Computed example of a mutant assay.
Amino acid sequence: MSARAFHVEPIDYASGLAELRAVRETVFVQEQQVPIAEEWDALDPLCRHVIARDEAGRPIGTGRLTPEHKIGRMAVLGDWRGLGVGDAMLAALMAEARKLGWPAVSLNAQVSAETFYARQGFIPYGERFWEAGIEHQSMRRALHGPTAVENAAGAIAAVVAVVSHARRTLRIYSRELDPGLLDNSSVLEALRRFSTGKRGGEVQVLLQDAATPQRTLAPLLSLSQRLPSVFAFREVREPVDKAYASAFIANDMGGYYFRTLGHRFDGEADLQGAGRARQLCDEFGRFWERSRPCTEFRALGI
């Protein structure tokens, strides 16, 4: 068995307190200098806790689900970070919340971990704040149906999630490559990771206005030139298609982010909306067949 093998399971707070302390006090108190009096609170005995253990049974990660429908105290020991432990614990906590019939869960993410939660479909809302000397961002995810997206930060998180969960194909319908969204560094990194993966990915981008991103040297065009076998761009030309007011991104795994008005960021996102994602992809396909290839993007010299 691989030395990286681990498993996640529920743990009783009272009988498992020593194991919870071993992880949480190492990560929060020792590493992040959170006062121990702030680390343990009156909610802990009332929460549902999960623990990750290595193959020898040693604790390597913890997380909790509070009666307030919040995920918290997510912690993974340093040697195990980046190996999927946090993802597995988050999935276990969301599965437990679904069993309880909760419609949604929220969390207060450390800003440094915001992209991690965004990849799992959590959307930021409200202003950032400080807690225990660390900057945080509130985030939420609906467990049944779409999550509302309210602003640019939420839009960025939604696109990162849809891209991160794509298997082979992404379809993007945009007015002019959405400045402030498709040129965001987190979005570009997610697209780069998808495009350079080993799954033979394909990204189709349909624009209403191809001239503006070409003129402004949009960063996504530069990325696409380095990966011409992955990216394909077209521009709508039929008047009825140019009148289409919405914008969206959809993947082949049931994920989508849809905006009724394409010049705004507010909309809805769902990583498990297979029916709606399929509908958007079908609609995209009809537009695509009537559009013209943007051959001018192949030699921008950027």
Rank of each mutant, 00 (worst) to 15 (best):
V50H: 13
Q33S: 10
G154C: 12
P179Y: 06
T196N: 07
F258C: 01
S164H: 08
A56N: 10
S185Y: 09
S185K: 14
C47T: 04
A299G: 05
W288E: 09
L90P: 01
L90H: 10
A155H: 04
R286C: 06
S185A: 15
W130R: 02
L300F: 07
S291E: 13
L90G: 02
H7T: 14
V162W: 02
E25P: 01
R226Y: 02
L181E: 13
A88D: 10
T169Y: 13
N108D: 14
R192F: 13
L300M: 15
L65W: 02
V8L: 01
N251E: 07
L170Q: 02
K99G: 10
Q137F: 08
T260F: 08
D54Y: 08
R48D: 14
R21T: 14
G121R: 08
A88F: 05
D209A: 09
W102S: 01
R53S: 14
K99P: 00
T62M: 04
A269C: 15
E25C: 05
A245Q: 13
R73S: 07
R64N: 11
A14V: 09
Q208L: 15
A104F: 05
A299Y: 10
R141N: 03
R168G: 03
H7V: 04
A132V: 08
A5R: 14
E296K: 02
E55F: 10
L46C: 12
G82V: 03
S186P: 00
A22K: 11
S106N: 01
P239Q: 12
M89R: 02
Y125C: 04
H136F: 11
Q272I: 00
N184G: 08
P124L: 15
W40H: 11
I60A: 13
R286G: 04
L65F: 10
G180Y: 08
P59Y: 04
A97F: 03
R168T: 14
A88P: 02
H165T: 12
E235C: 14
R199P: 01
P219K: 03
P213S: 06
Q225I: 07
S174L: 13
R259F: 09
A250F: 06
M253H: 13
L77N: 06
G273V: 04
I51V: 15
R53M: 15
R226V: 03
G61L: 11
Q208W: 08
H49T: 10
R4P: 00
T212L: 11
I123D: 07
G255L: 08
M74F: 09
G126Y: 10
G72Y: 05
